[in-house]
Amino acid sequence: MEHLPDYIAHLIWLDLQDELTSEQRRELDRWIEQNPYNKIIAERTKNQANLSKDLASYQKFNTEIAWKKFDDHTVIAPKAAIRKLSPQLIGWVAACILLIATCITIYLNDKQVIRYVEKPNTKIEPATKGALLTLSDGKRVLLDTIQNGLIKLENGVVAEVSDGQLSYKESGNFNVPNTIATTPGRHYQMTLADGTKVWLNANSSISFPSGFHGNTRNVMIHGEVYFEVMKNKNKPFIVEAPNGLKIEVTGTKFNLNTYANENTWKTTLLEGRVNVHLDGRSLALLPGAQAQVDRTKRNISIVRNIDPEQAIAWKNGLFNFEGATLPEIMRQIERWYDIKVDYKGPVQRIDFFGEISRNENLEDIIRALQESGVKLKLNRERRLITVEQ
């Protein structure tokens, strides 16, 4: 009988070569859907950069011990005819799977995982689409409840709701300020009057005029927001963030993370060009780069050749745990599931890898984290507690 790591490595290799049979495709899909842990492995093997990094790190492991530990957490695959492959090829894929599995099931220093297996007693769903619109006269509109169609807001301002998204229509009433805010456990997408598309992460907000008049287009944000700015060279788009941070663009795609409980605020550019301003300093940002602001020291620096997809994973419905610390992951989980996280004892130091869907229930996220060695329990007061070692 074939052990699961070898067999799954074989199936993934065939998938990469587009050579899976229908039966093999069903087998691989069944394995992927077994749990979020398997999904992380499958998604990671599709990324060439991740595979190269995993292969390099793989050399550091004691493979005999690692395989045994991985096998201890798996089942045995049924017999199947396996076409003979080059040992280097199947070993390459198996190595990548092994590294991810090992990072999720044991500490890097070959420590045995100690699991906290108490099952959460509260089922918590992921964030849903919804936001609160506050008009200039103080009236509030719960956007979750608005049906598709045109709506009149104030002073002749007209917007359209379609599939849970709000789009403003350009009008002559340029000085009507509005704010759209999401709470923890909510996210939202909207379109400004100039055609700029905006995605709001959980616990975020944007303040904007119902129409743009004058030489600039100014908005103000808190939290995390992704922009696809409508191009207009004659009217720059300016985003004002807390503590004097300002982003200036003419037409571009970028992500801005300014949560108050994050030590570093990040502006990540996908397309176009932006200028980042802080305390009289100005830095130009090109695609594939990230401006990082130390919130307490107010230092600003540029990190080049980053993976911009990691910064916007949330907008694409994913948690990206690549290189993240436990507190960074927990802050994301707090906002997305509207819970609180408490730490009992020292914070565990674990290296995390991979992505997982944000559509998973919290219980599935907890299970994936437990597989990585994090000991957790969820009480009935929606408090997720990390248990000391």
Rank of each mutant, 00 (worst) to 15 (best):
P308L: 08
R295W: 06
G214S: 08
R26F: 12
K231T: 13
H3F: 07
L135I: 09
Y226R: 06
D194T: 00
I247F: 08
V249G: 05
L285K: 05
A324M: 12
A81K: 09
R30K: 15
F237Y: 10
K297I: 14
E2W: 03
Q348E: 12
I302Y: 04
Y168W: 06
D364I: 07
T134N: 09
K46N: 12
K340F: 07
P327I: 15
L166Y: 05
I247E: 13
N178T: 12
A181Y: 07
A42Q: 04
R304G: 03
I65Q: 12
E322T: 14
L20I: 07
G288W: 04
W265I: 13
R115P: 03
G323C: 05
R304P: 00
L16I: 13
N275S: 02
V225N: 07
P308C: 12
E262P: 12
L285M: 08
L99R: 01
G149R: 02
R382N: 13
T179V: 08
A284S: 10
I90K: 02
K340G: 02
L256G: 00
V219T: 10
N257M: 05
K60S: 11
N38E: 15
E170F: 07
A94I: 04
N109A: 04
K119Y: 08
N148E: 14
E64W: 00
E371C: 09
G373L: 06
H10Q: 05
K344E: 06
L11Q: 01
S136Q: 13
L384S: 11
D351N: 11
S167D: 12
L192T: 06
I12A: 01
K79F: 13
K119G: 04
Y7P: 01
E64M: 02
V93E: 15
Q332M: 14
W314E: 05
L326F: 11
P5S: 03
